[in-house]
C-alpha cells in the first residue's frame, strides 16, 4: 500500500472521498465503537468468550490476583471475575435498553402531545415534567422500586422513568420548532390528517437530537442500574450484575482490589464510549 502510494503521487495529493472521510474519523471514536461492539457481543454470545459458569466457583481458587489464567482475578467464592463481567453485561445492557426504551417512548409521547395539542395540555404536561426534574433521580428511582418491588426489570423501569422528563423536554422543543415550519403547514394545507402529518413530517424531522440523547442516556442508564445494584435494589446474588459485583467486592477492598476496581472500570469504559458515540451521532445530525 505504501509503496503504491509513493509511486502514484497524484493519489496522495487528491485523496478519494472514502480516504478523506476516513481521515476525519477520530481514533477515540473508533475505540468507543469497538468497546460498545465488544460489550454487545458479550451480552449476545457470552459463551464464546468464556467457558465457565459465572455462578459456580472453584473452592481452591479463592481471591486470586489477576493472572494469565484469570485476567480479572477471582472472587471470594473462586469465581472468575472476567467471566462474571462478561455474563453480567447482558443484565446491564438489557436493563439499559429497557430503561432507555421506557424513557424514549413515554418521554417522546409526552413531548409530542405537549408540543402539538392545546396550550392547556402543554402547560399541564410540562409542569409535571418540571416536578419530575426537580426530584433527584436516585431518590425517584428508589421510590419507584419500593412501589414496584425488587428485580432487574423493575430497576430498569425505575431508571427509565427518571429519564422521561428529559426526553419529554427535548422532544417538545424540537416538535414546537418543526411544527411551525412551512412544510408542515403545507402538508396540512394539502389535506393531511393531523396524525398523518405528525407521523410523516413532524416526528422524522424532530427525532435527530432525541436519538443522540438516547445514546447518551444508554450510558447513564448503565451507571444508574449499577448504582441501584450496588445499593442492593437490583438482581439478587449470585446474579453477576456489575453494580452488585462492585458491592460484594467492597468487603475485600483492602486485600483484593480487583473485585471492585475492574468491574468498575468496565462500567466507566462503557459509559464513556456510549457518550462519545452519542456525541458523534448528534454532530452528524446537525451537520
Amino acid at each position: 500500500m505504501t509503496a503504491q502510494a509513493v509511486t502514484v503521487g497524484d493519489e496522495i495529493r487528491r485523496p478519494t472521498a472514502i480516504v478523506r472521510r476516513l481521515r476525519r474519523v477520530s481514533p477515540a471514536l473508533v475505540l468507543a465503537w469497538l468497546a460498545v461492539a465488544v460489550v454487545v457481543a458479550w451480552a449476545l454470545v457470552p459463551w464464546l468468550f468464556s467457558a465457565a459458569d459465572p455462578t459456580i466457583g472453584v473452592s481452591g481458587q479463592r481471591l486470586q490476583a489477576p493472572s494469565i489464567q484469570h485476567l480479572f482475578g477471582t472472587d471470594q467464592l473462586g469465581r472468575d471475575v472476567l467471566d462474571r463481567v462478561i455474563y453480567g453485561s447482558r443484565f446491564s445492557l438489557v436493563g439499559a435498553l429497557v430503561a432507555v426504551g421506557v424513557g424514549l417512548v413515554a418521554g417522546t409521547a409526552l413531548g409530542v402531545l405537549a408540543g402539538t395539542l392545546s396550550r392547556a395540555v402543554d402547560d399541564v404536561i410540562m409542569r409535571i415534567v418540571d416536578v419530575l426534574l426537580a426530584i433527584p433521580s436516585l431518590l425517584l428511582s428508589l421510590s419507584i422500586i419500593t412501589l414496584l418491588g425488587f428485580g432487574t426489570v423493575n430497576v430498569s423501569i425505575a431508571v427509565g422513568i427518571t429519564s422521561i422528563a428529559m426526553f419529554a423536554r427535548l422532544t417538545r422543543s424540537q416538535v414546537v420548532k418543526v411544527r411551525h415550519t412551512d412544510y408542515v403547514e403545507a402538508a396540512v394545507g394539502s389535506g393531511g390528517h393531523f396524525l398523518g402529518v405528525l407521523w410523516r413530517h413532524v416526528l422524522p424531522n424532530s427525532m435527530g437530537p432525541v436519538v443522540a440523547l438516547s445514546a447518551l442516556q444508554f450510558g447513564s442508564a448503565i451507571l444508574q442500574i449499577a448504582t441501584l445494584g450496588f445499593l442492593g435494589f437490583g438482581a439478587p446474588p449470585p446474579t453477576p450484575e456489575w453494580g452488585l459485583m462492585v458491592s460484594e467486592g467492597r468487603n475485600y477492598i483492602a486485600t483484593s482490589w480487583w473485585l471492585t476496581t475492574l468491574p468498575g472500570a468496565i462500567v466507566v469504559v462503557v459509559v464513556l464510549s456510549t457518550h462519545r458515540v452519542s456525541r458523534s451521532l448528534g454532530r452528524e445530525k446537525r451537520g
Partner: peptide, 28 residues
C-alpha cells in the same frame, strides 16, 4: 392551494420530490 415565499422551508428535507408531489393525492 398555497405556494410559499421560501422554497428552502416549504419542502420537507427528508422526503424525495416524488413523495412531496404525491403526498396531497395520498391525503385524499
Amino acid at each position: 392551494q398555497l405556494v410559499y415565499q421560501n422554497p428552502y422551508g416549504s419542502l420537507d428535507p427528508r422526503r424525495s420530490v416524488e413523495e412531496i408531489v404525491t403526498e396531497p393525492l395520498r391525503n385524499f
